[in-house]
Simulated scan of single mutants.
Amino acid sequence: MLLIKNGKIITMTGVTHENGCVLIENGKIKAVGTKIEESKEYEVIDASGAWVLPGFIDAHCHIGIFEQDMGFEGSDGNESTDPVTPELRAIDAINPMDSAFKEAAQAGITTVMTGPGSANVIGGQFVAMKTMGVSIDDMIILEPAAMKVAFGENPKRIYSSKKQMPSTRMGTAAKLRETLIKAQNYRMKKERASKKDESFDIDFKMEALIPVLEKKIPIKAHAHRADDILTAIRIAREFDLKMTLDHCTEGHLIVDYIKDCGYPALVGPTLTARKKVETKNKTFKTLGILSKEGIKTAIITDHPVVPINYLPLCAAMAVKEGMDMDEAFKAITINAAEICNIEKRVGSIEVGKDADIAIFDGNPMEIFTNTLYTIINGKVVYNR
Rank of each mutant, 00 (worst) to 15 (best):
G133N: 05
L230I: 13
A336T: 03
N154I: 05
N281G: 02
K216Y: 11
K189S: 09
N26C: 01
C61K: 02
E143W: 00
F204G: 00
A119N: 10
S160E: 12
A119K: 05
G133I: 05
N370P: 01
G64S: 11
V346Y: 04
D354G: 00
A150D: 10
C261S: 15
N309P: 00
S160F: 07
I36F: 04
G133Y: 02
M170F: 15
V346E: 12
Y373L: 03
M243G: 13
L180A: 11
D246R: 03
G251C: 09
K275E: 13
I158V: 15
I342C: 13
I357E: 01
E103D: 13
D361G: 07
F72S: 13
I334P: 01
S80C: 08
L253Y: 04
H224F: 03
K5H: 10
K8A: 02
L266S: 03
A328K: 03
I289G: 01
I210V: 15
M132R: 00
H62N: 10
I122T: 10
P144W: 07
G288E: 05
I24M: 11
V44Y: 07
C21S: 09
A107V: 03
L271F: 10
A100M: 04
W51N: 02
M1V: 11
V305M: 14
I9E: 12
N341Q: 12
K182F: 12
K156G: 05
I367N: 07
D76A: 13
L88C: 08
H247Y: 03
E18W: 03
S348K: 11
A328E: 06
E238A: 14
I210T: 09
R237W: 01
E327I: 12
E350A: 11
A223V: 06
I235C: 12
D201N: 02
T301Q: 11
N309D: 12
I349D: 09
P264H: 12
R234C: 09
E238M: 15
F66D: 05
L313A: 13
S75L: 13
V149D: 06
Q68E: 15
M188Q: 14
N363H: 14
T81E: 13
N309G: 09
F360N: 03
H247Q: 01
T85G: 01
I375G: 02
K130S: 11
E343L: 04
N154E: 03
V267G: 00
T301D: 10
I36D: 01
I332A: 00
A316H: 04
M188V: 08
A336M: 04
M12L: 14
P264G: 12
D82N: 14
G171W: 06
A316E: 07
P54G: 03
T81Y: 13
H252K: 09
T374Y: 02
G71W: 07
A173S: 14
R237L: 01
